[in-house]
């Protein structure tokens, strides 16, 4: 049964509502939260501040631009009991407040420790809740998998590590961790992400017909070129080769290139996963 475009024909249908802006919000949320978490780990004040700003301006801005009624955005806090949108909003809010307190207080004080823990936990939730949000939709089998939060976590940590290395190499941040350790961590995360994406795609080959339809679009259809070229090629393979063979020894230019390639891949993989979401036919397939 093919994908249908006509509104009056039954069949598999593409999801069209969540695309560019939601992908941008997911992207900024994950790299911002990842950078914030890595900054807590490495002790980078500037990194933590940038992480907060990326989440606030990038993620918050993309969500506000997307909302049909942005003036009512505060209502999105109402139902955290059942809605991952509301939970994510709460996590963002707590991350902003606790993060700002953490940055403002003198390091080592009791308040600083408490703020660090709360901000860290909420940043972790911001990093992964997109995965739970997508996983919670039974409508699109490609997203309705427990692999989603895992992918979000690994991509978030990878983005955070790349950006931290970028800040260090451009002389914008000093950290208490050795740069070589972060460089190795980036390589391990790149390999982990490649494996995670591979496992996710393999799991979809055994999923429902709609998930397989999504998979066909992603790996062999309209979206195959950006998937192989940008999400996998530039985002993971090129980044891995550059990080492994050249890495931080290549200087700021190479680290900048690695970071840019990683971010391009990061944006496109989630953008493409949103674009290839396919709904099932309402009453299944008609047979003779």
């Amino acid at each position: 049964m093919p994908l249908v475009a006509s509104e009056f024909v039954s069949g598999f249908r593409l999801q069209t509502e969540w695309a560019t802006l939601i992908a941008a919000a997911f992207f900024f949320g994950k790299i911002g939260a990842g950078l914030f978490l890595m900054s807590l780990f490495t002790g980078s004040w500037l990194g933590a501040l940038l992480g907060l700003l990326i989440v606030l301006i990038g993620k918050g801005g993309a969500h506000l631009l997307y909302l049909g009624r942005p003036e009512r955005f505060w209502r999105g806090l109402t139902k955290p009991g059942t809605s991952w949108v509301a939970r994510g909003f709460w996590a963002m809010l707590i991350m902003m407040v606790a993060g700002a307190i953490f940055l403002a207080l003198p390091p080592g004080s009791a308040g600083w420790w408490i703020a660090e823990v709360i901000a860290g936990i909420s940043a972790f939730i911001v990093a992964i809740y997109d995965g739970f949000l997508l996983n919670a939709s039974p409508s699109i089998p490609l997203w309705n998998t427990a692999m989603m939060p895992v992918l979000c976590l690994f991509y978030s940590l990878l983005g955070g590590t790349s950006l931290t290395l970028f800040l260090i190499n451009f002389g914008l941040a000093t950290v208490r961790i050795q740069e070589a350790f972060l460089s190795h961590m980036e390589i391990v995360l790149l390999i982990t992400n490649l494996i995670a994406v591979g496992l996710y795609l393999i799991s979809m080959t055994h999923a429902t017909a709609a998930a397989r339809k999504s998979l066909q679009l992603l790996v062999g259809g309209t979206y195959a070129v950006p998937f192989y070229g940008l999400a996998i090629g530039v985002g993971l393979v090129f980044t891995l080769l550059m990080a492994y063979f050249v890495g931080v020894a290549g200087g700021p230019g190479v680290v900048g290139l690695i970071t840019a390639a990683d971010l391009v891949g990061h944006y496109f993989i989630f953008f493409l996963l949103l674009r290839v979401g396919v709904y099932k036919p309402v009453l299944g397939q008609l047979t003779i």
Partner: peptide, 23 residues
């Protein structure tokens, strides 16, 4: 009056029976 237009419901409906009123 309460809807903010986030379209989470639109995406979550397996039957695709919701409509977003564009600007």
């Amino acid at each position: 009056q309460k809807c903010i237009g986030c379209r989470a419901c639109y995406v979550a409906c397996p039957y695709k029976n919701r409509i977003f009123l564009q600007k």
